[in-house]
């Protein structure tokens, strides 16, 4: 059986909020390393991979592989019943038809308990190869969100060009064109506001802004985001957490 207690409901709330619009129904794969998820969006253009490592829970117990097929809108409704500072305990049997959630508030001794019905979800699991990316760009999450939001006003797609000097996001649309360039720099006082580019060769790829804007719903998970690019492979957008990650993969636009 699964028993996993997380100290702060807000962590789980933010993770689900980050992915629910992209993948409304998905399997949470639980085993002794933690709770993982991999799912493609309906159009098969983007893929979400999430991991909450076992050491982010206390206690964590899961002796065999358990798949929890969950509708994330249902889970969101139940998580709204938890306060951010509540502890959440997740419980499920070995062959579960429901997931049990207990919210505990130690301050006012309030305990609430919910069960969500599970679904059978037939999900294709993709093998994601370990990739040495040509460019990895780490930038403030809020900056990436702003760039995506700004450029999406002008165009459906954005070209991301990484060079030694920095990264340039540019777009063109019916009303005109626009670009934002971030030069590599280090903020000593606030390292999370730095922009860093690790580059083995320059890259220039085009992506759908609609998806990137959607990925930015994960902005509350981390102060920085890493974009990893190589020519002709999907973009990796990674939000790291203390005990896990949310990764989004997005297929590039291709000239035909």
């Amino acid at each position: 059986m699964l028993e996993a207690r997380i100290e702060q409901a807000s962590v789980l709330k933010r993770v689900i909020e980050a992915i629910k619009d992209l993948v409304p129904d998905c399997n949470f794969d639980c085993n002794d390393t933690g709770i993982a998820l991999q799912a493609m969006d309906n159009s098969h253009v983007a893929l979400v991979a999430m991991l909450l490592r076992a050491d982010g829970f206390s206690p964590y117990r899961c002796d065999r592989n358990i798949a929890l097929g969950i509708n994330l809108n249902s889970l969101t409704k139940v998580l709204r019943c938890a306060q951010n500072e509540d502890m959440i305990t997740l419980k499920a049997d070995d062959a579960p038809d429901s997931l049990n959630l207990v919210f505990e508030n130690t301050e006012n001794e309030r305990i609430s308990e919910y069960d969500i019905k599970l679904m059978d979800i037939d999900q294709e699991h993709l093998g994601i190869p370990d990739t040495e990316y040509s460019a990895s760009i780490t930038l403030p999450t809020a900056e990436f969100q702003r760039i995506c939001r700004d450029l999406s006003q002008l165009s459906e797609s954005v070209a991301i060009e990484a060079t030694k000097e920095g990264v340039k996001f540019s777009c063109s649309g019916d009303i005109g064109n626009g670009s934002v360039t971030l030069r590599t720099h280090q903020n000593v006082d606030k390292p999370e506001l730095s922009t860093k580019v690790d580059l083995t060769e320059p890259v220039n790829l085009t992506f759908s802004l609609k998806y990137l804007v959607n990925f930015c719903k994960a902005s509350s998970l981390s102060q920085t985001v890493t974009l990893s690019l190589s020519n002709e492979v999907p973009l990796l957008v990674e939000y790291k957490m203390d005990n896990g990650y949310v990764r989004f993969y997005l297929a590039p636009k291709i000239d035909e």
Binding site: L126, G127, P129, K253, I254
Partner: peptide, 14 residues
């Protein structure tokens, strides 16, 4: 024209 690729093609072939 620019077409969006489908993600699974990259990972199955990759």
């Amino acid at each position: 024209k620019i077409f969006q690729g489908q993600i699974f093609k990259f990972f199955l072939e990759g």
